[in-house]
C-alpha cells in the first residue's frame, strides 16, 4: 500500500515538474507546479508528517502559486513565449551544467546514505508515533519555537524587510511633473 501511494505521488510530482519546464504557456506551467506540490504533500502524509502536508498545500499551492498566477494574468504574459532568443549569452549551457551537477549531487547523497534515508522519522530526533494525534504539531512547534527560534524570527524579519522595501520602491514620491 505504501509503495503504491509512493509511486503515484512520485509520478505526480515528476509529471508536474516536467510540465513546469516543458509547457510553453506560463499558466499551464504554473498549474503543473501545483500538481508537483500536491505530489509532495502526499509524500509528506506518507511520512506521517500530516501537518507539513497541510501547510504545504495552504502556503505553496494556496498562496504562492496563486500569487504567480496573479502576476502572470495581470502582466499579460500569458501567451506562448518565444524560446528562440536567449536573454543572457550562454544561459542555456550554464543552466544545463548546474542542473546536471545538482542532480548528480542528489543521486550521490541518496547512494551514500543508502537505506538510512528511508527509515521513517529519522529526520527528527524521535519518531512521530504514539496515540497522541497532535504529536506531529507539538514536535514541529517545539523545533521551530524552541531550538530554531532565532532562525525563525530572522526569517520573519527578512520577509517584513522585503515587503517594506517593495512598498517603498513602488510608492516612492515622484518628482514634480
Amino acid at each position: 500500500m505504501d509503495f503504491f501511494v509512493f509511486t503515484c505521488a512520485a509520478l505526480m510530482s515528476l509529471v508536474g515538474a516536467l510540465g513546469v519546464v516543458l509547457r510553453r504557456n506560463p499558466v499551464h506551467a504554473a498549474l503543473s507546479l501545483v500538481l508537483t506540490l500536491f505530489g509532495v504533500a502526499v509524500l509528506f502524509v506518507l511520512l506521517q508528517a500530516e501537518f507539513l502536508a497541510a501547510v504545504q498545500v495552504i502556503v505553496y499551492a494556496g498562496a504562492i502559486v496563486v500569487l504567480f498566477l496573479f502576476v502572470i494574468m495581470l502582466l499579460g504574459v500569458d501567451r506562448i513565449e518565444n524560446l528562440r532568443t536567449e536573454p543572457i549569452a550562454l544561459q542555456r549551457w550554464v543552466a544545463g551544467l548546474v542542473g546536471l551537477a545538482l542532480s548528480g549531487l542528489l543521486v550521490a547523497t541518496a547512494l551514500v546514505a543508502g537505506d538510512e534515508t528511508v527509515v521513517r522519522g529519522s529526520g527528527i530526533a524521535s519518531a512521530v508515533a504514539g496515540d497522541d494525534p497532535d504529536a506531529n504539531v507539538r514536535q514541529i512547534a517545539g523545533e521551530i519555537f524552541g531550538d530554531y527560534v532565532v532562525a525563525f524570527e530572522l526569517t520573519s524579519v527578512l520577509l517584513v524587510v522585503a515587503v517594506v522595501g517593495t512598498v517603498v520602491m513602488a510608492r516612492r514620491k515622484q518628482a514634480a511633473k
Binding site: A54, I58, D134
Partner: peptide, 10 residues
C-alpha cells in the same frame, strides 16, 4: 484527520 481544521483551510 489529525490535522482536521487545517485540512478545511487547505
Amino acid at each position: 484527520p489529525s490535522i482536521g481544521v487545517l485540512f478545511a483551510l487547505a
